[in-house]
Design a protein around this nucleic acid. Structure first.
Lengths: 226, 226
DNA sequence: CTCAGTTATCGTCAGACCGACGATATAAGT
DNA sequence: ACTTATATCGTCGGTCTGACGATAACTGAG
């Protein structure tokens, strides 16, 4: 009746138009050499969320604080860790584009890998990651969370590219522009604009105050389950 | 670094047009005499979901198996149980209308109480319950989960009353009928109908194969967060 | 400077969907 | 037969969306 409790992080970001996850290579058995989600033990007097925040900065030497962190789910199959009974609370973190993590890292190596075409992962981390990606995909529909993948100021096109990368789908720039700017509280214009890029300069926006998108921004109709 | 792990259940049902939760009265300190969510320790070799299923039938002497069970969230603040460090994995269960639980129950008393106007709850169970109710309310929008509150065969009106009870809102019977019957995979007509009630007999339906409602059945616009 | 290329932004239009609500069907009870 | 209650079908106008044309405002090549 005594368990070890860990937190594992599904850290997602968008790099080069692809949804990527931060993975670390395990230096010790079991699964030595395999990639795994970053994570670690929850301390005695520490709240679960605090442990997630700590791991977020500690295990991965990243400067960027996550713009979004939420609990994902808890995994505790008796056999999921061959050494002991370990229950892990998984968290989902969304980050703006971040540089490759390298030095100062606790784990041997850490790397951003695209969620498509992943190597086998340690433990049940493949399932956890799948759940995290699915959560992120679903949440983009009815929450303004896509902005969490963007820098503090961003263009509508950057926001659209987030949707395209996460959903792995093409969206019409004109319709997306109308939708993003007309949904109350989604984005707020700053008055600034970009310059130096190709094409006409774009307005810059910040995250708006809305916590839900109403009406939602739905994906194309899901696989007809008939 | 060693934790006790429990599962707690947010069991919801609709009784007399009100969303109700099953609560048990604690027979021992702490919070002796207070109501609490049913729950218990996870066994050494037991999966989390199995523990939830076990508690579902064990702690509450209910015949009705839950028509839906899903993990809700995990709560592990250091101070949430004054006796020890306990991490609890909360599950959300939806049941058709069930009789009052009485005998054979492990806990002293169990009762269905409407989620509005609740007494103070033990531990952080008020917060867990709030999260469970909010999850249920949100899921009715985009999933066919409302049918989990209904018996195997049900009428469109019964389904509508579930929405009305959970959302605490009135829905137009004609528009709801159109929506429920036209959303692919939501409900399947059985060919049978009711008889003996007041008014015109109604067709009976079963849960359809859909896992998501597309398009969703949205609540009225949320509080304008501006 | 002029022109082609590129991206942002605004419009238009038809179809899907929704909320409000009228109309009709089919039962029970008197 | 008539009232009451509920189920079910239609209609109509407004809103939202997808497809896509048109224009604006920049960069870079010549």
């Amino acid at each position: 009746m005594s368990f070890a409790v860990t937190v594992d992080l599904v850290m997602l970001t968008v790099r080069a138009d692809a949804l990527c996850v931060l993975l670390v290579r395990r230096a010790i058995p079991p699964f030595e050499g395999s990639y795994a989600l970053p994570g670690g033990f929850v301390l005695d007097t520490e709240d679960l969320t605090d442990a997630a925040i700590r791991e977020l900065s500690e295990e991965t030497g990243l400067q960027q604080p996550a713009t979004h962190l939420e609990q994902l789910a808890t995994y505790g199959s008796p056999g999921r860790d061959p050494r002991a009974r370990v229950v892990t609370v998984a968290y989902l973190a969304l980050l703006p584009e971040a540089p490759d993590p390298t030095a100062g890292s606790d784990a041997a190596e850490a790397a951003w890998l695209p969620v498509e075409s992943l190597p086998p992962l340690a433990f049940d981390h493949a399932a956890i990651l799948r759940d995290g990606v699915e959560r992120a995909r679903a949440k983009l529909e009815y929450s303004p969370l896509a902005a969490a993948f963007c820098p503090p100021e961003f263009t509508i096109a950057e926001l659209r590219q987030v949707y395209e990368a996460v959903w792995n789908a093409k969206l019409d720039p004109r319709n997306f522009h109308r939708k993003a700017t007309s949904t109350p509280g989604f984005v707020v214009p700053t008055g600034h604009s970009t310059a130096g890029d190709r094409g006409r300069p774009a307005q810059l926006f910040t995250r708006g105050p809305a916590t839900v998108l109403y009406p939602p921004l739905l994906r194309a109709s899901p696989p007809t389950s008939s």
